[in-house]
Design a protein around this nucleic acid. Structure first.
Lengths: 134, 134
DNA sequence: CATGTACTTAGCTCATCGGTTAAATAACCT
DNA sequence: AGGTTATTTAACCGATGAGCTAAGTACATG
């Protein structure tokens, strides 16, 4: 019965109302009432959607007096992107060129420049998104 | 009744069996029988899963004699990644540094090197993933 | 303390989903 | 033609999911 995290995250994303809520939250933290406004739907329905999103790790909630403000939670988004990365080579042509490019950059760096900052090393590590396995 | 494309794609991804099938297909095109082997599940069940994946645009299928080989279809993956891109700033720190970095690179390039290849221009355009709106 | 505001929980309905078995279809191989 | 292999369709079942209304909880304020 306890669905694995990735499954519950994808399930949560499979609903347009919930994706719209996330889109709203991308603009900033807000209350349940505020989130409910755009939808022609009862408040309990929204409440359920929020519970699903929370359970999926896509949002987190605080409490401020009688309000329960919601905000985007990064972790599950990151996990989804990580999973998606296993397939990135199928559709992102620049992804396939990236290894070569990084090699070239590192070679350039090593020969012609002292590490005047660590930014390029960072790039080699951080831009290699989407290669982690499930 | 006709769910929007993004919803049916996410729904299709919300099942571990289907994600496992996709993982297998990432290794290469193969038949239904082959795909079914790892699972303790009837063949019709697999057939249904494949139909869901196909409907979601995540796979496409050919026909070769009595086999109906399946392969990854890029389009829906790309769409998911595009949608996810709207939220990338919440979890990918390098994403926030990317604009600055690219500016710096272009500046460097313009001053110190003739365009011995177009690779860096390409990067500025193609690495700006995840900024399209739904 | 009483009332109002912001939510959540409970209990219901109906549709969809993931699985089953049994039967049908399709293409190949004597 | 008749059999084997690969895959789908049909019909069913139990569980889950999205929506509703009505009632409950929590905090704030007059």
């Amino acid at each position: 019965m306890p669905l694995d995290p990735l499954s519950s995250t994808f399930a949560a994303l499979a609903d347009p109302t919930r994706r719209a809520i996330l889109a709203r939250l991308a603009l900033g933290e807000t209350s349940v009432m505020e989130l409910a406004k755009p939808f022609d739907m009862s408040l309990p329905a929204i409440s359920k959607h929020l519970k699903v999103l929370e359970h999926a790790g896509l949002i987190s909630r605080g409490r401020e007096a009688q309000w329960r403000p919601c905000r985007i939670a990064p972790a599950s988004f990151k996990q989804v992107d990580g999973w998606l990365g296993n397939f990135r080579r199928f559709w992102d042509e620049s992804f396939n060129r990236l290894d070569g490019l990084l090699e070239e950059m590192k070679a350039d760096e090593a020969v012609k420049a002292p590490p005047r900052s660590n930014r390029k090393v960072r790039v080699t590590k951080e831009k290699q998104r989407g290669r982690t396995r499930e």
